[in-house]
Each structure stands twice: as C-alpha cells, then as structure tokens.
Nucleic acid binder design. Sequence first.
DNA 1: GATCATTTCTGAACGCGTTCAAATTCGGGG
DNA 2: CCCCGAATTTGAACGCGTTCAGAAATGATC
Lengths: 220, 220
Amino acid sequence: MAAKSEQTRQLVADVALKMFREIGFEKTTMRAIAQEAEVSVGNAYYYFASKDELVQELYIQVQNEHAEVAAQVLNDVHDLAGRLKAVLHTGVDVMAPYHQFGSDFIATAIRPTSPVNPFGEASNAAREASLAIFRSAVDGSSPAVAKKLREDLPELLWLAYMGVALFWVYDKSEGQRRTRKLIDGAAPLVARGLSLAKIPGVSKVFDDVLGLVRSVKEGS
Amino acid sequence: MAAKSEQTRQLVADVALKMFREIGFEKTTMRAIAQEAEVSVGNAYYYFASKDELVQELYIQVQNEHAEVAAQVLNDVHDLAGRLKAVLHTGVDVMAPYHQFGSDFIATAIRPTSPVNPFGEASNAAREASLAIFRSAVDGSSPAVAKKLREDLPELLWLAYMGVALFWVYDKSEGQRRTRKLIDGAAPLVARGLSLAKIPGVSKVFDDVLGLVRSVKEGS
DNA sequence: GATCATTTCTGAACGCGTTCAAATTCGGGG
DNA sequence: CCCCGAATTTGAACGCGTTCAGAAATGATC
C-alpha cells in the first residue's frame, strides 16, 4: 500500500505545521516533531530533507489558501483599488495564524538557497500562483488599467505584496492593525497614481520606469 | 593594562571579519575563529555574546566607511540625481568585498531580535548615521527639493536603499553590474518623479502618500 | 511459503552555536 | 613580596539540525 508512506509524510507535515503555529519555529525542533508524530528523527528526514522543507510545506498551503479565498472575493469587486485591497487583505488573513512565526519564516525564505525563497527555482509554482492572483486583479478591473501598464503591473504589485508581508511581520500592533491601515491607504493611492499615467508630463516618467524595470529584469 | 583586553577583542573581531570575507558566514565557525585567533571558544564569547554580534561589528564598520566615502563624493555633486547615485554607488562599493556573505547577513539582519536588524534598537546609531547620509544628499542638493518632501524623503530613500541592498544580494551578474544599472536608471527617475510634485493633479497624490507614510509610521 | 530487492524506518554520531563552572592571570593594598 | 577580589580565559557539555550504516517491513517472483 503506497498510502502508508503518504500517511507518514502527512502525519509529519501536520504535526510540524501545528507546532509551528503553536510554539513557533525555534521551539519546534526536529526531535520534538518526531516524538510528537511518534516516528524517529531519521524517518522525518526520509520525507523532508530539511527543516526548511517543512516550512515550504506551510508556504505552499498558505499560498493555495490565498489563491482560493482571493478568487472568491474578487468576484464581487470591480474597481482596481478595491481589488487590490481584497487581494492584500486576504493575503494577510491567511497568514494571520502564523504571525509569530513570520520573522523566522522570512529569515529562512530570504536565503537564496532556501526552497521557500520566493524568487528561487523551488517556488516557481507558488510564485506563479501568487502572480496569477495579481494578474487577475489587474485584468479583471473596470475601469481598465492603461494598456501599457497591464503587462508589468502584476509583477510589480506582487513585489509590493512582498513588501507588505515584510511590514506585517514587523507589525506588532494588535491584530496587525497598522498593516490593515497601510493596505487601505495604499491601494487607492496606487490606483489613483496609475490613473495619472494619462497626463503627458507624467506619462514619460511612467514609460521610463517601465523601461528600467524591463532592462533590469533581464540579465546582462 | 586595559589595552590587553581591547587587544583580544580586536583580534577576535579582525579574524572573524577576515574569515567572513574570505570563506563566508557558514564556514566561519566560532571554533575556527577561536583557533585562528589562538584563543578558546569561550574567550571569544567573553567579548561577543553571539556570532551575530560579530556580524554587527562588520555592519558598523561598513556603515562608517560608507558615511565617510559618501560625504567625500557629495562635495562634488549638486543635482539630486547625481547625489543619489553617489550615495548608492558608494554604498555598493563598501559592501562589495562581502557580496558572497550578503545573503547570510540579510537572513541574520532581518530577524527582529538580531542586533543587526536595521529597524531594531541595537542599530539605532548605525541607522541614524545612514539616514544622515541621505538627509545630507537631499538637503544639499540644488535645485532644492520641494519643501514638503524634504522631511520625509531621506527616510523613504533610506528604505529604498535597503531595497537596493536586497537586490544587490541577489544580483549574480559579474561585479553586480545589474545593481549599478538599476542605480543609474533609478536615481534620475526619482529626481524627475519628485519634480512632478509641482503639477496640481499630481501634487495631491504626493500629499496623500506623505500622509499615509506618516500615519503608518506612528503606531495605532 | 521462501527468496530477495526495495522501501521504510531507526538511533547513534557529527559539527554547529552557545553556556558555564572552574582555572588562571592581573593589579592594587598590606 | 604576598594576598585577594576582579577580570580574563579555558574546555567540557548541552541541544540543535543533519547524516548514515544498518535493521525492519514490504511486496514481487517463483
């Protein structure tokens, strides 16, 4: 029965995520996970090559939940500011249970060799899923976003989202109220700022920003 | 002789920084530092409570060097774009020897409990020194920056600088050419973007951005 | 049911950052 | 010169993430 193997894997992952949530990253030792799941340490390593891979498991799960919840909410909102708010707020919502875990997660994720590094190979799928949310938020908005912005905007918004996530990690206000405030304030501002692209003097600056983004994105 | 104590401290710090530069963060173990400096492991810990504090030593040294070099270069440049370029390029210059060390440094620094966290208490002095560079770059520029921007701009630029540093860490192009390109492209764009603040329709958006920044910066 | 390769599992061991009780060295007062 | 409290130094020990040789369970083949 191949299910037995998968069962052990799930057991370890479930125990780990539960402990991450309840007692944080550092106190959740591999030995403690193994003991709680009633397997040997080596057995946990048979399924997860490192503690980081257990973090990746969490990352994927949170990401999937975000995509699901955001898609739901986006059905009812049509202006760009509202859609941005929706995506960002739902993002913070799904991360909420892991707030105390956040700084350790980011310290792990920021290392280029980490499987959870959002810019890295190992999380291509997760990043694409996350990018798709922003693409949907932009493409589905009415009034429509200026054509020339439509291609690069989702990626820039996703980058901004990484910034919001960083802000959220450091946000010690109760319920991370300041992050909510930032989202509520920034989303309409971004929408209004983008609408300025029609003003002739401003348009050129926008073009140059996009040009710079594109030239820097590619290597060389 | 109190100098003997200081001598040991310096010896440990010097050996550590040299090893950080030459073989990176992970291979520079506390045991290796102790052995190279010909002291016991415990003795190294007598002067530095953790490996992180040795990283802090490096951080302060790099910061001081940046302040010094930047102040020098700023004497000869007067337009905002040029001054920004100068500060950013010199920043990258002084970090250069530690590029391979960068990701480990940032992973350490991003943890709120770390002494090198740029937003944390322990590096107030270093942050103020860094902020002062940007304040000088803004205040000393001619033509002058719009009055209403002058107070908050240095902090925002410093924040952007943190972003550039992050980009630099991930930049695997030879000599970090892409980071240089980003700086050369972004600095004039920022200067031009700021000059748009005079356009009536744009001015209001700027005001709102500043208002948001201020309201989010303070708690609650 | 016996055989055997493969998958799954075990726990001791390694090197790491860090801690700490004890040993050593130092410097000033008798 | 000697003594003593403080500063400095030592190295064994702890818990951590990770590794790995080998034991146990599994399932395909006859």
